[in-house]
């Protein structure tokens, strides 16, 4: 952190701040209207994990997630931001329960949307049962809130990506915005390699990781609705855009999603690599997609035109 610069606007500061590099608190600070954030159960409450001491591991006062309310262009929002550097942003008992409580409130209020800034490796190993169950409760709470009319937007672009149960929660959201480093998957590269061998997935092949799980591929598939450059202002604008686009949720959304995913399997089920899928989408020189600058990529993705809108 640097000393506050008085002569630049919040938007300029947000534009020049990498979402990937920023902490959860900085992301919220710059994403929301200046000074509007109010935290629920902040670090001074010291609600740390009750389980890490069993493993003689250090705790964090907020257990790696910041939840609260704020304003986005003047309108109230509930927000949750995971800190991907603390235990990989993984879900533990306290960490998960903070998000569950926020979603249950959103369901009751029904009119205030929720932004979830994912940054997670999935379940926290040292409290695996509690973390797994927290994710199940969050998924249930997301769906109950959406059924009550709440819009839930996931923003994905952190260091730890959005893996494991985090990927499933993301799949439950109304819409997602993703940046290039925002990987979304269930099994991480190392997990696949450990279980299936390096021939199945070479986790050290970073180009393979990015094109299989990274934001560009997810955007081209239509798994994410908006692709943004890696800065907090772009995520803010994407959140505002998505809040304006998300329609109501109901049985029709799930039927449309069934068709969307079945169609994806029919089209690309035999593809071996992301480049094969992109080529099948009609992208010339698909192998150059990973190098495309954000603006050119966004134009390409918009031309391909796949989204999950009203089908998730």
């Amino acid at each position: 952190m640097t000393a506050p610069l008085k002569d630049i606007t919040p938007a300029e500061r947000a534009r020049s701040t990498s979402f990937y590099e920023a902490s959860a608190r900085t992301r919220l600070d710059l994403l929301l209207d200046a000074g509007s954030f109010v935290e629920f159960i902040g670090p001074e409450q010291r609600e740390v994990s009750p389980h890490l001491k069993i493993f003689d591991l250090p705790e964090q006062f907020d257990d790696g997630i910041v939840v609260g309310r704020g304003r986005l262009d003047g309108a109230p929002v509930f927000v949750a931001a995971q800190e991907g550097r603390f235990m990989g942003g993984a879900f533990g008992e306290v960490h998960g329960a903070k998000l569950t409580g926020l979603l249950r409130a959103a369901r009751q209020v029904a009119s205030i949307p929720v932004l979830i800034l994912f940054d997670t490796g999935g379940v926290r190993l040292q409290e695996a049962n509690a973390g797994e169950l927290a994710i199940a409760e969050i998924m249930r709470a997301v769906m109950e809130a959406r059924a009550a009319g709440v819009k839930i937007i996931g923003l994905i672009g952190g260091r730890s990506g959005c893996y494991g149960g985090g990927g499933l929660i993301a799949g439950c959201c109304s819409a997602l915005a993703v940046s290039e480093p925002g990987r979304i998957a269930v099994s991480g590269p190392e997990v696949i390699e450990t279980n299936r061998g390096v021939e199945e997935f070479d986790s050290r092949d970073r180009a393979l990781v990015w094109r299989t799980m990274g934001g560009k591929h997810r955007r081209l598939l239509g798994a994410a609705d908006v692709f943004v450059d890696d800065n907090v202002q772009d995520f803010r604008e994407a959140a505002l855009e998505l809040l304006g686009l998300v329609g109501p949720f109901g049985l029709d959304s799930l039927k449309a999603e069934q068709e969307r995913l079945a169609d994806r399997l029919r089209r690309y089920g035999a593809c071996f690599d992301a480049v094969d899928i992109w080529t099948a989408e009609g992208i010339a020189h698909a192998e150059t997609v990973p190098e495309l600058p954000a603006d050119q990529f966004i134009a390409l993705a918009d031309r391909i035109g796949r989204t999950s809108r009203d089908a998730r």
Binding site: M1, S23, R25, G42, P43, E44, P58, E59, Q60, F61, D62, E83, R85, F86
Partner: peptide
């Protein structure tokens, strides 16, 4: 009254 900086890693 309070402030927090840094992350546990």
């Amino acid at each position: 009254q309070s402030a927090i900086v840094g992350v546990v890693a």
